Simulated scan of single mutants.
Amino acid sequence: MSLLEIRGLSVDFRQDGREMPAVRNVSFHVGAGETVAVVGESGSGKSVTALATVDLLPESAVARGSVLYQGEEMIGAPEDRLQRIRGNDISFIFQEPMTSLNPLHTIEKQLGESLSVHQGLRGQPLQDRIVELLGKVGIPDPVMRLKSYPHQLSGGQRQRVMIAMALANEPQLLIADEPTTALDVTIEAQILELLADLQRSEGLSLLFITHDLGVVRKIADRVVVMRQGEVVETGPCAQIFDAPSHAYTKMLLDAETIGAPAPVAEDAPELLCTDQLRVWFPIQRGILRRTVGHVKAVNAASLSV
């Protein structure tokens, strides 16, 4: 039995007395320990499908069909049952952590809320668990980061905090909705490697929503290709890339950016130069806000353009 099985899912949005289709007759499954990538251009219905798994759609949406989690129907399930599954069995990582994290609360408070509600942790055991989670996702000096606010973290660190929040209650299925789109390629590679490591160590299943075929090549066991709210092709990752059958899949593959930059002339003038550039942010603690350390955002960077 599949961990998650979607059968004939359709989602309509009510607007001005009309129903506008967003997803039509979508069917696929996610097995235990498997990574399934749902790929397609913006507006293809990827995120709507993911949100429908545990009824996180807006009130204007109407979902039909079947979404089975461990054989239990999620469409029309009681709210208390959905609440137990959300964040416990199924967790989400969203695209932009700055819109998902509360800018007014520390990292400790935001991670602690979920652990307090779902696991009843308080005091030192709660703080120990938060530090453990931050360390697991690769946040340096996690104890020092407990009192940090989201704006005091880099984009990659904020996304790592979001992953820590998603892992807090040891879910079985992680749904990642474009989690690397807002990151540069170096940090993207680190986040993808982190997700792969966590999947192996935690025994997670992963439903990965993306439009980036380069990401799909790296992480997916199977691929679901969506266009205009419908699944047009699905199959093992190697099959989709090596022998696509649908014209839309072929078009997506043809659109991949492949190549190398043009060579730079040897006599090209230098436009920008930095020498040992350093940007450090102070870490302040206590009533007197004494500086106890620094976050080294940039350290001794030298380059020329």
Score class of each variant (00 low, 15 high):
Met165Tyr: 11
Asn102Glu: 03
Ala182Leu: 00
Leu9Asn: 02
Ile258Met: 06
Leu115Val: 10
Arg7His: 14
Glu230Trp: 15
Leu195Phe: 05
Ala268Ser: 14
Arg145Ile: 12
Gly17Leu: 12
Arg285Ala: 14
Leu134Arg: 00
Phe208Leu: 00
Leu56Gln: 04
Glu233Met: 12
Ala166Tyr: 07
Glu178Cys: 02
Leu115Pro: 00
His118Trp: 12
Glu73Asp: 08
Leu173Asp: 02
Asp89Gln: 09
Gly286Pro: 10
Gly17Ile: 09
Ile175His: 11
Leu153His: 10
Glu79Tyr: 08
Val11Leu: 10
His246Glu: 12
Val185Arg: 04
Gln276Trp: 14
Arg14Ala: 13
Glu79Ser: 08
Ala297Lys: 09
Val36His: 01
Glu266Ser: 13
Ser44Ala: 11
Val131Gln: 06
Gly123His: 01
Leu115Trp: 02
Asp242Pro: 08
Val137Ala: 04
Gln15Thr: 12
Ala268Pro: 09
Asn299Asp: 15
Leu194Tyr: 03
Asp254Cys: 07
Thr99Asn: 14
Pro150Lys: 03
Pro263Trp: 01
Glu188Asp: 09
Gly123Phe: 07
Val137Lys: 00
Ala166Phe: 01
Leu192Glu: 03
Ser47Pro: 04
Asp267Arg: 11
Lys46Tyr: 10
Ala247Cys: 09
Gln276Asn: 11
Val54Cys: 08
Trp280Ala: 15
Val36Gly: 00
Asp80Arg: 15
Asp254Tyr: 08
Gly138Ile: 07
Thr99Gly: 04
Arg24Trp: 06
Lys218Pro: 06
Gly293Ile: 09
Gly135Lys: 05
Ala164Met: 06
Val67Lys: 04
Val295Gly: 09
Ala301Leu: 14
Val231Lys: 02
Thr35Glu: 02
Thr291Gln: 15
Ala255Lys: 05
Pro179Ala: 04
Lys218Met: 12
Asp55Lys: 11
Val143His: 12
Glu170Pro: 10
Leu192Ala: 04
Ser44Phe: 08
Val137Gly: 08
Thr99Lys: 01
Ser27Val: 10
Ala238Asn: 15
Gln95Lys: 07
Glu5Gly: 14
Pro142Met: 08
Asn25Trp: 13
Ser302Gln: 12
Val231Gln: 02
Ala37Cys: 07
Gln159Met: 03
Leu82Glu: 13
